[in-house]
Design a protein around this nucleic acid. Structure first.
Lengths: 137, 137
DNA sequence: GAAACAGTTTGATACTCGCCAAACAATCGG
DNA sequence: CCGATTGTTTGGCGAGTATCAAACTGTTTC
């Protein structure tokens, strides 16, 4: 079940259980996450109702992939296990996806899935979060 | 901190009959609530990240005023003190406003304030909550 | 004044959550 | 193989929360 794609195999095939990831994302190893249709609004709001996770969301809003270290996210004051916990909450809520590549994990926002599930919600949330801290300028 | 108006303010009686029509938003008739500019996004999401409070939000989405009893909200399975607790969380998060009229309290959504603070967010939330339960039709 | 009404507050309990520290697992470089 | 890197998992602790039950406040009605 462990596949090492980077050096030898050009194509990776890791089919998971249909209850977790039923959608065709990048052909790479991903941590378990809910299917788009299974993303629950209350669970999502609960996940984002925490200052640390909201900060993580804003970090991910650029659409790029981010590694998991606290230093990469401006969370030096938190232990790495705490950051790992928060990222798990976000992933299990359907907010983020995690791609495993070697000893690194790359986290990114599930923007397409969220827009499909709750149209307009993510944009409104990001706009609200940006408007909530106007004094920074 | 909860302030008892009847003990601190000697002359507060601004009671008006509800049948006379819409009343201006008088401070003395309202339970304490955050100012529009003080509504915090994370606090708001935390408040809505609970199934009971999300249900309350949907009940208030019609814009009308609702009394506080569990029977009026389809929450018969919950104790009245529990409902009171949830409505306090919503009010302190800035989601709702509570007008005191005699021995009744009328709760309604702060739609204008929320739209001013976080444009588009409430609509997206209500649309998402409606889309989250499509099998009910 | 007494009773009924509408809702809040307090106390108690069980559960969840956020946090850290240490142990653990997997990968990459020597 | 050994150690360094990267992140996860487990255990524990303090704080917060959801719930009910009972007592309480203020209001209306009798």
């Amino acid at each position: 079940m462990i596949v090492k794609p980077s050096l030898l195999s050009p194509a990776v095939s890791l089919r998971r259980d249909p209850r977790t990831g039923a959608e065709p994302m990048t052909e790479d190893e991903r941590l378990p996450q809910p299917a788009t249709a299974d993303i629950d609004l209350v669970t999502l709001l609960h996940a984002l109702g925490d200052p640390v996770r909201m900060r993580l969301l804003l970090s991910y809003a650029d659409g790029a992939e981010h590694s998991c270290g606290p230093r990469d996210l401006g969370l030096d004051h938190l232990h790495k296990s705490t950051v790992s916990h928060h990222m798990r909450v976000l992933r299990e809520a359907g907010v983020t996806t995690t791609r495993v590549a070697g000893r690194n994990r790359f986290v990114s926002l599930r923007r397409t899935d969220l827009d499909a599930r709750f149209p307009g919600l993510l944009d409104a949330l990001l706009a609200s979060a940006g408007a909530a801290v106007p004094a920074a300028a």
